[in-house]
Each structure stands twice: as structure tokens, then as C-alpha cells.
Simulated assay, not measured.
Amino acid sequence: MRIFAATSRYVQGAGALDDLGRYCRPLGSHAFVITDADMAKLLGARVTASFETAEMASSLEVFPGEITHAAIAELAGRARDFGADMIVGLGGGKALDTAKGVALKLGARSVSVPTIASNDGPASAAIAVYDEHHIMQDILHLPRNPELVLADTQVIANAPVRFLRAGIGDAISKKFEAEACAAAGATTLLGTPASLTGLMAADACYQIIRQHAVAAVRAVEQKQVNDDLEALVEATVLLSTLSFENGGLSLAHALARGFSYLERARGTLHGDHVAYGLLVQLVMEKRSQDFILELCGFFREVGLPTRLADFGLEQPTATEIRELAEKSMVSPSAARFAPPVDADQLEVAIRQVEAITAAQN
């Protein structure tokens, strides 16, 4: 058996935010919008106006800042009182996952409006729930992907460029992770083998990133939208999701879980963790050093990390490297690799990455 998962409608382009109400109208009449304080001030009026134009009722609510079970429960109560038939997430990953969590709790339709392209969460059915210290507690799943994902590329271009870089890091691994899952005979989050569609999406995602990422980053540094940025956002938001949901996740994302436990890496981004994790995975795959060095060159060109020092871990201790290896094994993604790996092997691979990349600096 194979299962294909995807969002029902994907809308992307500069100025698309002003049409949010029009695209939401087929989904219902009462939109409960969850966002953060900054986005409420910056974009709240445009969002409210778009729903008024579409003759819909809307309520804009600010979430507390961390996606926890308590936050989801509280906002679900407010949404229920409002009579919401759709929950709209507006902002970064935390706001979007909080909105998806509320939609799951209420059985309402889910809409994602990313204001940054830092990861592939907007189009995904997955919901990452953390504790107050941003340690992952649960991965929940909507019964189906968001009904609508709307990405305004001018809004994304106006955001700090480090978020776009992280989105590149989160997406560029998908080709290698999907291929690793297929080679290991592992199942995706849907519980079925990697599909041909997922593998094709993952390969296309990688090719688009390699072709367009450098110019797209330069455009966002100037707060501009160009064809390269449009291509890159489609890869990092849409294709990346198709890749991991229908292809699978492996060691690169396991390493990302491990990073969340490193005190000196606090405040660094998920996509940056995945990018470094990809280098570790490539070492575990026994890829040639030339291949890894070439990819590191690309990472540096777009501003992605290649060393633990790039996360604030100057001269990482043996304890930190061991903790990264051990905590990475907590992730279910660590098991989607053949032959099976353990913390000792990951520790050796991390040290190899540090040695390889140190030679380039």
C-alpha cells in the first residue's frame, strides 16, 4: 500500500495575503486566526480586511509564544466560543503548529499562512509540540494536510534572511533522507513505503535549491522578490513537504532533534540543525570527501553552517559531541537508515564532519 499526502490548495505570490479571505471563503464563514504579537501588528489589519472583503467573520488571537498542550487547549476554547469552522495560522513555525494543534482539537479545517520560509511545516500535517523550554514533547498529526497554504513572497522577502537560509537547510536534505529511507525499506510518517512521487519531489527540491538558492538569498537581502525567490519558496515550503511526507526522514532530521538538547546551541534554527545533520548523514553513507566539500562550499555561499562552531559551540567539548550523538538517537528518524546506527557511530561521524570542515576554514 502507498499513501500520497498533500495540501488541497497552494497559493504563492507577492501580495497574495490580500486575497486570503477569497481563498478561505470556500472553507467556511468563521476564521479564527492565530498569530504572534509582531505579526498581529504588522499584518493583522490586512488579514482582517481580506476577510471583511470576503464577507467572513474573523477573530485575530495572539498565542503565548511556545507551542504547548496548554496553549493549544486555551486557544481551542476561544475558537470554540467564536464558532470557528477554520483555524488560520499566520507567522512562523510555532504559530502555524499552534493553529494546526487547535484545528486538530476542534476537528476544524486548517489554513497555513507562513510569513517566513524557514521550514516545511506550513503544508505538513505534522504538529511539533514542545515544553516551556522548547524541548520537543510530541509529534501530533492532522487527519489530513492543511486545506490551504498561502505564501506571500513579498512578506517572506521582508523577513530576516536567516529564516530563508534555514528553510534551505531544512529542504536540501530531503533528497538524501528520502533515498536513505527507500534504501532501508523504512516507512514514512504515513506508515507506508516511500512513494515514487515522494522520491521525485525530493530530487526536484534539491535541484531547484541548487539552481536558485544563491540568487534568492541575495534578493531577500535586498527585500526583493524575483523568479529565483519564487522558485526557492516553492521548493522549501511545498516540495520539501511532499518530499518528507511521501519519502521519509532519516539521519539529518535525527541530528536536528539532538541539537535541541545542547545548551550552547539555544536560539539556533531547526533548518540549520538539519543542514549540519545532512553532513553527518553523508559521512555515514560513506560519500566521497570531494562531494561533501562541494556541498559545504554551497552551504557557505548561502550562509548555512558547516561546523559546530557556527552554532556557538566554539571548541565543542567531548561531552557536547557525545550528547548530540546520544540525543539524536531519541528521534524515530534515526532508525530509518541502513545499516542500523548507534550513538557511537554518530559520534565518530560528527567528529569526521568537524575534521573535514575545519580544513576549509
Score class of each variant (00 low, 15 high):
A5N: 11
V11S: 09
Q12L: 11
G15F: 12
L17A: 09
L17R: 02
D18N: 09
D18Q: 15
D19E: 14
L20K: 01
C24P: 11
C24A: 15
C24S: 10
A40G: 04
L42S: 09
G44E: 07
R46E: 13
R46W: 08
E52W: 03
A54I: 08
M56G: 01
S58P: 00
P64D: 03
P64G: 05
I67E: 07
H69E: 13
A71G: 05
A73H: 07
A73R: 07
E74Y: 06
L75M: 06
R80P: 00
R80Y: 12
L90V: 11
G91I: 07
G92A: 02
K94S: 06
L96A: 11
T98P: 11
A99R: 07
K100D: 05
A103L: 03
A103W: 05
G107P: 08
A108E: 04
A108L: 08
R109Q: 12
V113P: 02
P114F: 01
P114M: 07
A117S: 11
N119F: 03
N119A: 14
D120S: 11
P122A: 08
A123L: 08
A123G: 13
S124K: 04
V129S: 10
V129G: 10
D131V: 12
E132D: 13
H134Q: 15
I135Q: 14
D138A: 09
P146W: 01
L150D: 02
A151W: 07
Q154M: 14
I156C: 07
F163K: 03
G169W: 01
G169F: 02
S173I: 06
K174N: 10
F176W: 07
E177V: 09
A178N: 02
C181T: 11
A182G: 05
A183S: 12
A183D: 12
L190Y: 02
A201Q: 09
A201H: 04
Q207I: 10
Q211T: 15
Q222R: 15
L229N: 02
L229K: 02
A235Y: 10
V237I: 15
S243Q: 04
G248D: 06
G248H: 09
A252N: 04
H253V: 06
H253F: 00
A254W: 00
L255V: 07
R257P: 04
R257V: 11
Y261S: 10
L262H: 00
R264A: 14
R266N: 10
R266M: 06
T268F: 09
H270W: 07
D272K: 00
H273R: 06
V280C: 02
V280N: 01
E285K: 08
D290R: 13
L293R: 14
E294D: 15
G297W: 11
R300F: 05
G303M: 04
L304H: 06
L304S: 08
T306Y: 07
R307H: 11
L308G: 04
A309N: 06
D310P: 05
Q315L: 14
Q315C: 10
P316S: 05
E320K: 03
I321E: 01
I321M: 01
S328D: 03
V330W: 10
V330D: 05
S333T: 09
S333G: 04
R336V: 11
F337V: 04
P340S: 10
D342V: 13
Q345F: 00
Q345C: 10
L346S: 05
T357E: 03
A359E: 13
Q360P: 01
N361E: 14
